[in-house]
Amino acid sequence: MATDDLIARLALDLKPVSRSSVAKRLAIGLGLGFAASWLLMVWWLGMRPDLMDAAATMPFWGKLAYTLLLAVIGAWAVKRIAYPLGSIIINLVLMAVALFAFGILAAGIFAMAPPEMHMTMLTGKSLAVCTFNIVVLSTPLLIGAFWVLRGLAPTRLTLAGAAAGIAAGAIGSVIYSFHCTESSMPFVAVWYTLGILIPGLIGAVAGRFFLRW
């Protein structure tokens, strides 16, 4: 096809684009992913039966604040990396600060606890299941984030995939915290964080293949 024909066809197909369309696409993709992941959690794992009581305790809110903060940083990263030449250095720095701060806090609590408590603090009742469950719950979110990016123009595909994965893992862990009854901070710092970083790794590897345009 001649370039002139293509130009005529594209001009004919032109529709106005609003400034908020990128944000809208992000909201739709992550919103649908959230809904799917939430339903999956309720149907597969079930809400924690003591949610009302737990909502009155600090660990519940601490866990929620940590995962929610990472979710916001991650979702913002997806938006930033969706533009050509988009950079997510700020997001990576913020995330490193959050991980570090929470890690220090958790390490402090761990060190101050009596040694016989150490094992239970780290393994809890659910050990590795926790990380695995978060990775599973993040899958619909990862698909949603990839859909967002495929319609936009990321030029660094590995980074874009990693951003999508971290956002998916973080939002997935927010949802998971409505099921999980673990409350020790060291537990969250290890297994939840791992549950966020693994989808990030999956996204980084998948980005090169699935985010091409």
Binding site: I7, D13, R19, V22, R25, L85, G151, L152, W213
Partner: peptide
């Protein structure tokens, strides 16, 4: 032609406060 089609389908990612040529160049280079 591929770049023109990309410009068309990705035009929502152009931010008016940035230079247009830099945006176009990023797409062409990609």
């Amino acid at each position: 032609q591929e770049t023109l089609m990309a410009l068309h389908s990705k035009r929502a990612t152009y931010e008016p406060d940035r230079p247009f040529t830099a945006w176009l160049h990023a797409i062409a280079q990609y």
